[in-house]
Computed example of a mutant assay.
Amino acid sequence: MSPAHPPVRRPRTLPAVLALTVAVLTLLTGCSSAPEKAAAESSGTVAVGTPSPGGESGAGEPGAGEAVAPAKVDIPSLGISSSLMDLGLNEDGTVEVPPAEKGMTAGWYTGGAIPGEAGAAVIIGHNDTRFGKAVFHDLKKITKGTEITVTDDEGAAKRFTVKDTESVSKNSFPTEKVYGQTDTPVLRLITCDGDFDAEGHPVNNLIVYATPA
């Protein structure tokens, strides 16, 4: 997995690609307990729900023209600024994550909406990896009303305001709430959170919910 080179364009007519289930199977390297391979690559993983093929994502309604995929996320009040790599699905249907060596780079889940388009846009980042502090290390400090800016490759900025946050067990990740289809633009940020299990992996996910400012 590596950052997207050149920027990815997708038509505003975003196809019905994925139906979201409530099963908690997706593992994100860097934040919670993981299979042996993932555990060997980082300090843990994050469970973020498993999309399955055959239905709609939160991708928005058909329209004219093209939308430009996001290139950068900024949270000025927390000192967070990162380019965005594209994250798709692994062969087992779980969501890809930024590789541990790219821990300071967040990723946009391409099966969801483009930020600013109708639907749920999801950005995922590590808290820590085996290389140390990662891009969303300070996301736990975010509060309601905080501004988040997502900029596309053409320089257009979409601004969002945090409406809520929650820390949830990775064993009960609210997949439909995070990825489910919405009629309006929404943004979700996800990282790891909570206490550590016996293997040293955080047991929770931190989810940030935001809407257009």
Rank of each mutant, 00 (worst) to 15 (best):
M1K: 08
M1Y: 12
A4G: 08
P11L: 09
R12T: 15
A16I: 06
A16E: 11
V17I: 00
L20P: 01
L20A: 08
T21I: 01
V22N: 15
A23R: 06
A23D: 13
V24A: 12
T26R: 05
L28N: 09
G30D: 02
G30W: 03
C31G: 11
S33Q: 14
A38Q: 13
S42Q: 11
S43H: 07
S43L: 15
S43A: 08
T45D: 12
T45I: 01
V46L: 13
V48L: 10
T50H: 06
P53D: 13
G54C: 04
A59I: 09
G60V: 02
P62E: 11
G65M: 05
A67Q: 07
A67M: 02
K72I: 03
V73S: 05
V73A: 03
D74F: 08
D74T: 10
D74A: 15
I75T: 03
P76I: 02
P76D: 09
P76C: 07
S77C: 03
L78A: 05
S82N: 05
L87M: 11
L87G: 00
L87W: 02
L89A: 14
D92A: 13
G93I: 06
T94G: 14
T94M: 11
T94V: 05
V95F: 14
A100D: 15
E101W: 10
E101D: 15
M104H: 07
T105G: 00
T105C: 02
G107F: 04
W108C: 02
W108Q: 12
T110I: 14
A113S: 14
I114M: 04
G116E: 03
E117Y: 08
G119T: 06
A120H: 00
A121F: 03
G125W: 05
G125P: 02
H126N: 11
N127P: 00
T129Y: 12
R130G: 03
V135T: 14
H137K: 04
H137G: 00
I142N: 08
T143M: 07
G145L: 05
I148M: 01
I148E: 05
T149H: 13
T151Y: 01
E154Y: 04
E154V: 01
E154D: 15
G155Y: 14
A157F: 00
K158L: 04
F160H: 09
V162E: 12
V162M: 10
K163H: 10
D164H: 09
V168T: 12
S169Q: 03
S169M: 04
S169N: 03
K170I: 11
N171D: 12
S172D: 15
F173S: 08
F173E: 06
P174R: 11
K177L: 10
K177V: 08
Y179G: 04
G180P: 05
Q181H: 14
T184M: 07
L189T: 01
T191M: 01
D193A: 07
F196S: 03
D197C: 09
A198L: 13
E199R: 15
N205F: 07
V208M: 06
Y209C: 04
T211V: 14
T211C: 03
P212H: 10
A213D: 11
A213P: 04
